[in-house]
Amino acid sequence: MKIGVLAIQGAVREHVTALQKCGVDVACVKKAEQFAALDGLVIPGGESTTIGKLLVRFSLVEPILQLIAQGKAVYGTCAGLILLATRVEGREQFLLAGMDISVARNAFGRQRESFEQELSIPVLGKEPFPAVFIRAPLIKSYGSKVQVLARCNDEIVAARQDNLLVSAFHPELTDDVRMHSYFVGMAKGN
């Protein structure tokens, strides 16, 4: 089982550490030929405009869309959630458009409004999950194939659609690896 972490920019190291704790091989990927060997991919948090532009500039869009089409598990956190979405409210930017969701960027405000909060995420068990939101997006609407996994103050902050997983928060910034472990389970076909 080999999971890639898209290493264009952002919290790459933290995702690598969390995935290693889940007992899988991890590879940082930033060139087109590195994607085919992967059983799953994490698109980390960072700046979605930056990552999107560089995906296009260095021809990484096709390899990622291929992984998605092959049914490989792909997990997007924060900027990764935005990139996996089909629509972003109020602006034009490059999107991979894998998941049938509409998102609002910087939905809580600017950095001073960023926060941590414990969330109930039923698929991860009873123990609350420490969620870190940094200039985070929100899922404002979703299609019929999307399963909502977590809410924060009634707003949707984590969801799954078949082989795609997204969260508006950053589990990689905490020591709790249950989101990563759930994702590795998806990559293994659960």
């Binding site: 919290a11 790459v12 960072g46 900027a79 960023s114 926060f115 941590e116 870190v132 940094i134 910034l173």
Partner: peptide
């Protein structure tokens, strides 16, 4: 404004 939230934004800028 926790340290995790403050340092976290910088983590998101890495490689940029």
């Amino acid at each position: 404004g926790t340290f995790c939230v403050k340092a976290g934004l910088a983590e998101m800028q890495k490689g940029g």
